[in-house]
Amino acid sequence: TGEEYIAVGDFTAQQVGDLTFKKGEILLAIEKKPDGWWIAKDAKGNEGLVPRTYLEPYS
């Protein structure tokens, strides 16, 4: 299990392996990579890379 984050903006996948999401979606951070791209999972179970700058902790 990971930590929940809320998307603060829309993001469209730029390449294969990225995860597209919309502002307000809750994402589960699976792995926090030091380069600023995290592996996350959305509510539908889709998994991919997301930019850290689009996420804020969800409580």
Rank of each mutant, 00 (worst) to 15 (best):
I39S: 05
P51E: 07
L27C: 02
Y5C: 05
G17F: 05
A7W: 01
L19C: 03
L19M: 06
L28V: 14
L55Y: 01
G2W: 15
I39V: 14
D42C: 03
E56K: 10
Q15L: 09
V16L: 12
Q15K: 15
E31V: 13
F21Q: 01
K33D: 06
A43D: 08
T20Y: 03
S59W: 13
G45M: 04
D42L: 02
D42T: 05
P34G: 11
D35R: 02
A29D: 01
P51C: 14
K23V: 08
K33H: 12
V50E: 01
L49C: 12
R52L: 10
T53W: 15
A43I: 10
G24N: 06
G2P: 13
G2M: 13
T1V: 13
G45A: 03
L55I: 08
K23R: 11
V50M: 02
G17K: 04
K33Q: 09
W37V: 06
T53D: 15
T1H: 14
I26T: 05
I26M: 07
A7C: 09
G24K: 02
G2I: 13
G45H: 04
Q15H: 13
N46Y: 07
D18M: 15
I26G: 02
I39A: 05
K41H: 06
D18G: 14
G9V: 13
Q14G: 10
F21L: 05
P34Y: 09
A29P: 06
I30E: 02
E3M: 12
P57R: 08
E31F: 11
K32I: 08
Y5V: 03
K44T: 10
E56D: 07
K41A: 08
N46P: 01
L28Q: 10
A43L: 11
E47Y: 14
E31N: 11
F21H: 00
T1W: 13
D18A: 10
F21V: 09
G48I: 02
T53V: 13
Q14R: 15
G17Q: 06
E47H: 10
P57Q: 08
Y58I: 12
F11I: 04
K44I: 09
L28P: 01
T53L: 12
K33E: 05
E47D: 05
T20A: 10
S59C: 14
K32H: 06
E56N: 06
E4K: 15
D18C: 14
K32C: 08
Y58F: 12
D35A: 04
I39R: 10
E25V: 05
D10L: 00
D35G: 13
E25P: 00
E56C: 13
D18E: 15
Y54P: 02
E4G: 07
A7L: 03
W38K: 00
T12Y: 13
Y58D: 05
L27Q: 00
G24H: 05
Q15W: 08
D35Q: 04
T53I: 14
G24Y: 05
P34S: 13
K23G: 04
G45K: 03
I30P: 01
P34A: 14
K23M: 08
L27D: 00
L49V: 09
K23A: 10
V50Q: 01
W38S: 00
K23S: 07
S59T: 14
W38F: 07
K44A: 13
E4D: 06
A13L: 04
P57M: 07
T53E: 15
T12C: 12
P34R: 09
G2D: 11
L55M: 05
D18H: 15
Y5I: 02
Y58K: 08
V8C: 13
K44G: 09
R52W: 11
K32L: 07
L49E: 05
K32W: 06
E56L: 09
W38E: 01
V50A: 08
D10E: 06
T1M: 13
F11T: 02
K33G: 12
T12D: 11
K44L: 13
T12H: 10
I6E: 04
T53G: 14
G9N: 15
E3S: 11
R52Y: 14
P57Y: 08
F21S: 01
L27N: 00
T1D: 12
I39Y: 13
L27H: 01
L28N: 07
N46I: 08
A7H: 01
V8G: 04
I26Y: 05
E31S: 10
V8L: 13
V8D: 02
K44Y: 14
I6D: 00
A29S: 06
R52S: 15
V16H: 12
Q14D: 08
T20E: 08
T20R: 03
A7S: 07
A40C: 15
I6G: 01
Y54L: 15
G48A: 02
W37S: 06
V8P: 01
K32D: 03
A29L: 15
V16Y: 11
D35N: 11
T53F: 12
W37F: 09
E47V: 15
D35W: 04
E25K: 00
E31R: 09
I30L: 12
L28C: 11
D10I: 02
V8A: 06
N46K: 09
E4L: 15
K23F: 06
A13G: 12
G17T: 07
A29I: 15
